[in-house]
Write a protein that binds this DNA or RNA. Structure first.
Lengths: 136, 136
DNA sequence: GTAGAAGTTGAAGCGCACTCCAGGTCAACC
DNA sequence: GGTTGACCTGGAGTGCGCTTCAACTTCTAC
């Protein structure tokens, strides 16, 4: 299967502008062109773009993605370095998850606090509405 | 306890410039000033800054942090809305963690792949070093 | 054969969250 | 009382990751 840039954008969830941008900065090897000079993306291109998207989602900086891409072009002998990049990045992702979890604890604590405050407020309002009960 | 801007920066892990920036954009109520016009941060200021830092770490956009800050200035009657903001943001954080986990799976899969490739490479190198074994 | 949609290029622009700079004030120490 | 260093202000600059623009070409359908 082959895809126009619009189809590739649709399938990867990236914009056509981003596809051209990724090509320009060297994340993507220039795809084939049709007789009219238009880009023609292959399934392999899309697979690679999907993987890039995963890396982006995890916050890998573009310069690191570029290094990875360049190594890939240079073939199987760069597998060691590529693995190393991914292992390093995985450590970053794990750290990030741990960080988010710890912030989540704070968030939960705060939300519980607000629950308490709001319950107290509601109780005071009920008391104000039925003042005869207030001293009971 | 009170703190100079440098001490506040040190304790919160933010830069001096960022502290002034946060104040300028309304994340932080202008702290007290000493006789020479210098900022004097209180413990309450630092506590608030710590919380802001948590929110930033979880990727809350500054415009949302600002909304939260403005509500806080307006007092206890805004507790409901503030809780709502935190609850919404908590959902975002949970989603983000799930996303990272799913990317982590891809990362692990890729790394396993590289392990396999590298093992095969090593095996071929051993075979090349002792060719008489290659046919055994 | 002409309109309109989709594609091309190089370059400029944007939103975010800071970060840095120039030029000045103030307080503390020698 | 002179120097040093921390702090002040308003405003400009930065890096990242796109996004938009202008001007042009090409294909498709009527």
């Amino acid at each position: 299967m082959t895809y126009s840039i619009a189809q590739a954008a649709e399938r990867t969830g990236l914009s056509v502008d981003t596809l051209r941008y990724y090509e320009r900065i060297g994340l993507l090897e220039p795809p084939a062109r049709d007789s009219g000079g238009r880009r023609v993306y292959s399934d392999a291109d899309l697979t690679w773009l999907d993987f890039l998207t995963k890396l982006r989602l995890t916050g890998m900086p573009i310069r690191m993605m570029r290094e990875y891409a360049q190594l890939r072009y240079r073939g199987v002998m760069t597998a060691g370095r590529r693995k190393q990049l991914l292992v390093e990045h995985r450590a970053d992702v794990l750290e990030r998850i741990a960080e988010l979890r710890s912030c989540l604890d704070v968030l939960n604590y705060k939300i519980d606090n607000y629950d308490q405050i709001l319950r107290d407020q509601a109780a005071r309002e009920r008391a104000a509405a039925t003042p005869e009960e207030a001293t009971a």
